[in-house]
C-alpha cells in the first residue's frame, strides 16, 4: 500500500476505532480477543479498501470488524463442539434471581449485566443502535442481513431487556 493510499485508508477507518472496539467487545465479550479482532479487521479492511466507494467509512469498517468477530465466535463455538446458529430461540422465562443482583449493584451494572446475558445476535444490534446510534439501514450493512431482521432482532432484544430490568426493579423495591 502506497503512503497516500494508507493515508486515505486511515482516514476512513481510524475515526471509527472506538466504534470498532465497542462492537467487537460487545459481540464477543472478550476483552483480550477484541483488540486482536480489531487489528485483524484493520488489516483485512486494507485488503478490500478498493471496494470502498468513499463516504462514511463507519458502516463499511464495522462490517469487516463484525465478520472478524463472528469468525472468532465461530471458532470458539467449534472448539466447544457447538455449531454456530444464527437462529435465536427465545428463552422467555429464564430463571434468574433479581433480588440478589439488585442488592449491591448500581443501576449501570444491572443494565450491563442484562445486556451481557443476551445472545450475541441480539446484543450486537442493541449495541449498534443504542450505543453507536446507527440507523436500521446502517445496521443491516454491518450485520449483512435484511432490514426486517434488524427490526425483529432489535424488538426481541429490547423485550428481553425490558422483562429482565423490570424484574430487577421489582426485586429492589421489595
Amino acid at each position: 500500500m502506497k503512503p497516500d493510499e494508507r493515508g486515505r485508508f486511515e482516514q476512513a477507518t481510524l475515526p471509527h476505532l472506538d466504534a470498532a472496539y465497542n462492537l467487537a467487545r460487545w459481540f464477543t465479550q472478550n476483552e483480550h480477543a477484541s483488540e486482536d479482532i480489531v487489528q485483524e479487521a484493520f488489516y483485512r479492511a486494507a485488503r478490500y479498501f478498493r471496494s470502498f466507494r468513499g463516504g462514511d467509512g463507519r458502516a463499511w469498517f464495522l462490517s469487516v470488524v463484525r465478520r472478524a468477530s463472528l469468525a472468532w465466535l465461530e471458532k470458539q463455538r467449534m472448539q466447544a463442539g457447538v455449531a454456530f446458529k444464527e437462529d435465536v430461540h427465545d428463552r422467555g422465562d429464564e430463571t434468574s434471581n433479581p433480588e440478589i443482583l439488585a442488592i449491591r449493584k448500581s443501576d449501570d451494572e444491572i443494565v450491563r449485566q442484562a445486556l451481557e446475558e443476551l445472545p450475541p445476535e441480539l446484543r450486537e444490534v442493541i449495541a449498534l443502535r443504542e450505543l453507536e446510534g446507527l440507523s436500521y439501514q446502517e445496521i443491516a450493512i454491518v450485520i449483512e442481513a435484511p432490514m426486517g431482521t434488524v427490526m425483529s432482532r432489535l424488538s426481541r432484544g429490547r423485550e428481553r431487556l425490558q422483562r429482565r430490568l423490570s424484574r430487577c426493579h421489582e426485586g429492589r423495591t421489595t
Binding site: 500500500m1 485508508f9 476505532l17 472506538d18 465497542n22 483488540e35 487489528q39 443504542e130 431487556l161
Partner: peptide, 27 residues
C-alpha cells in the same frame, strides 16, 4: 437506561498503538 449507563467500550491506547504499527498488505 441502556444509553445512559456507561456501557461504551472505548478503544484502549494499546490498541491504537498496535494499529498504527500494523504493516498493511501490499496492494
Amino acid at each position: 437506561a441502556i444509553s445512559s449507563a456507561a456501557l461504551y467500550y472505548e478503544a484502549p491506547a494499546s490498541l491504537r498503538q498496535r494499529i498504527e504499527a500494523t504493516r498493511l498488505p501490499i496492494d
